[in-house]
Simulated scan of single mutants.
Amino acid sequence: MKESPGVVDLLGVLAYAELSAFARMTEDAATLAPSLTDRAALSELAVAEYAHFRLLRDQLAELGADPEEAMSPFVAALDGWHAQTAPGDWLEALVKAYVGEGIALDFYREAARRLDPPLAKLVDVVLADEGRSQFAVERVRAALEADPVAAGRLALWARRLVGEALSQGQRVAAARPELARMLVPADADDQAEISRMFARLTEEHGKRMTALGL
């Protein structure tokens, strides 16, 4: 028996998000990491993202959905976000991995709140931090201690990342109504629920900025 379109959409967008994160982190590790230690650390995080992709791909197949078909509606939006937010240096790459990816994953957590327990557990595993926070926070804070002036530039960069992520999320939700209904159920007060959701997203974003020292 196939799952509902909304569930397949959620797992599909998550699967492509994880596959994209793997590819971007691998590229950043190779081109932007300032040391072999940093390259190895980011590569390890990329490997974790790919493991998450495989879990989602296998779950989609188990539910009777074609993984490629499930991911394809989200390729343009996610590729567009990555193209518009290509980091210019190592610190921007770290902020993107922590703040930019973080706000995107928060969206998926919101939708996952309405999944059945077994699938919700899988999404929890996929959205696990895997050390991304500690890796980014330690390096960004150390860099800001050495060069406090960089804080302004990185704060602006983080603001841009979140703005682009929210815009892409809105476009995806508008194009995939079944997925949008997982964010805001049909029987809910749309405006009130959306306001609460954005309040939660904003709160989590604020915590990340504070952690980075921005």
Rank of each mutant, 00 (worst) to 15 (best):
R171K: 06
E164W: 01
S72W: 07
L122F: 08
L94K: 12
S133I: 07
A70D: 01
L115Y: 15
A112V: 09
F198W: 11
R24H: 14
K2D: 01
V75H: 12
K96R: 15
S43E: 01
T26H: 08
S133L: 13
A146K: 06
V184T: 08
D187L: 04
P34D: 08
Y108W: 13
P73I: 08
V137H: 13
K2F: 03
G169T: 01
P34W: 00
T202H: 14
A155H: 11
V13L: 06
E138L: 10
A51V: 15
A41K: 05
A186L: 03
M182A: 03
A97Q: 15
K2L: 10
S195Q: 10
G102M: 02
A17V: 05
P148D: 04
R109Q: 06
R176A: 05
F198M: 07
L63F: 10
A112P: 00
A104H: 03
A77G: 03
E130Q: 13
K207C: 02
Q84K: 02
G6A: 08
K121C: 05
F107H: 15
A136C: 09
R141E: 07
L156T: 12
A199Q: 15
A142M: 06
A70N: 06
R141L: 08
P87I: 00
E27K: 15
V95C: 05
A86I: 04
M197H: 12
A173T: 09
A111S: 10
L212R: 05
E18G: 09
P87W: 06
A104G: 07
A86Q: 13
A146Y: 02
Y50Q: 14
R200S: 14
A83T: 09
A30S: 05
R153T: 05
G88N: 02
L45F: 02
L119I: 00
S195M: 09
R24W: 13
D79H: 15
